[in-house]
Deep mutational scan, measured.
Amino acid sequence: MEVRTIKVFTTVDNINLHTQVVDMSMTYGQQFGPTYLDGADVTKIKPHNSHEGKTFYVLPNDDTLRVEAFEYYHTTDPSFLGRYMSALNHTKKWKYPQVNGLTSIKWADNNCYLATALLTLQQIELKFNPPALQDAYYRARAGEAANFCALILAYCNKTVGELGDVRETMSYLFQHANLDSCKRVLNVVCKTCGQQQTTLKGVEAVMYMGTLSYEQFKKGVQIPCTCGKQATKYLVQQESPFVMMSAPPAQYELKHGTFTCASEYTGNYQCGHYKHITSKETLYCIDGALLTKSSEYKGPITDVFYKENSYTTTIK
């Protein structure tokens, strides 16, 4: 009895394709271990004539594949690729409408935090270190965002349907971005203890939790000093293409032309909904596939993004 075979390709990165001759009487799992086709788990399936010449994702289970996976995804987590594939199996079914010149995501599976993050990423200057993220990001900007969303979920250790947080998501993504040249110098002034300067680099240099107003941050924000008295913390120097200011959701007025974009969060910790506000020729609110415009805006804002380049204080 002759062994019926077909020729397929296996890959971990969709760049390096490895030619395989597979036995049609055995499952993919018996031949390769966990195997995925377009995100779908085909591990328990036997090869079919229609699979001839198709590319299958496999887990990096030998040295060659491990090197290829690390170079593309910059992670050695053995569960990463499987999590990416199972997320992709959902995100490829989502709709990605162009809204006001940006790629958004039609609401499904509690994905409003991903839509808000995706919209924000198209408006701030950011370059990702893992080629996987950078490639998928370019495709997302062009309207094909399924891979990018699935990668975000995998890097953030999230599953489809789980509630997510924009600030946490951005923080994970910033860790995989090139923020080497970003720098922030802060000064804390206390009447009792004097003053202390701190220099922050990388992710810490672009994120701040405690106030939404970048102007206020430049002037000074009140913080408790270690001595128990009130101290003032203010920005001395900022070198970065953008800054992200966050605070627990509270009524906040966004003035046209003073910011790049913002995240609105309605609801409580267990259950809520994100919308995205962007400042173009007027203010726009993007909620999944829905767009509304207004000249002014007041609502429960939790993150505001500002364009920056270089700032030095005039406070002496």
Rank of each mutant, 00 (worst) to 15 (best):
Arg4Ser: 12
Asn14Pro: 05
Thr19Met: 14
Asp23Ile: 14
Leu37Ala: 11
Leu37Cys: 11
Asp38Tyr: 09
Ala40Met: 14
Ser50Glu: 15
Glu52Pro: 08
Leu59Ile: 14
Asn61Met: 13
Asp63Ala: 12
Thr64His: 10
Thr64Ala: 11
Val67Lys: 10
Val67Pro: 04
Thr76Leu: 14
Gly82Tyr: 12
Arg83Gln: 08
Arg83Val: 03
Arg83Thr: 02
Tyr84Asn: 03
Ser86Leu: 09
His90Glu: 11
Pro97Gly: 07
Val99Arg: 06
Thr103Pro: 01
Ser104Cys: 12
Ile105Gly: 00
Asn110Trp: 00
Asn111Cys: 09
Asn111Ser: 05
Tyr113Arg: 05
Leu119Val: 12
Leu121Tyr: 03
Leu121Arg: 03
Gln123Arg: 08
Gln123Thr: 05
Asn129Cys: 08
Pro131Ile: 02
Tyr138Trp: 14
Ala140Pro: 01
Glu144Lys: 09
Ala146Phe: 02
Ala150Gly: 02
Leu153Ala: 01
Tyr155Leu: 04
Thr159Glu: 15
Gly161Asn: 09
Gly161Thr: 05
Gly161Ala: 02
Asp165Val: 03
Val166Ile: 01
Val166Lys: 01
Ser171His: 15
Tyr172His: 09
Leu173Ser: 06
Asn178Val: 03
Ser181Phe: 11
Ser181Met: 12
Cys182Leu: 05
Val185Leu: 04
Leu186Val: 15
Asn187Arg: 11
Cys190Pro: 00
Gln195Met: 15
Thr199Glu: 13
Thr199Asp: 04
Thr199Pro: 04
Thr199Ser: 07
Val203Leu: 09
Phe217Val: 10
Lys219Val: 10
Gly220Ala: 05
Pro224Ile: 10
Pro224Glu: 11
Ala231Trp: 01
Ala231Pro: 02
Glu239Pro: 00
Pro241Tyr: 03
Phe242Met: 02
Ser246Phe: 04
Pro248Asn: 15
Gln251Ser: 09
Tyr252Thr: 13
Lys255Gln: 11
Gly257Met: 08
Thr258Cys: 06
Phe259Gly: 01
Thr260Gly: 01
Thr260Asp: 15
Thr260Val: 15
Glu264Thr: 06
Tyr269Ala: 15
Gln270Cys: 15
Cys271Ile: 15
His273Arg: 02
His273Trp: 02
Tyr274Asp: 04
Ile277Thr: 00
Thr278Gln: 14
Thr278Tyr: 15
Ala289Asn: 10
Thr292Ala: 08
Thr292Ile: 04
Ser294Lys: 10
Ser295Trp: 11
Gly299His: 05
Asn309Tyr: 12
Ile315His: 15
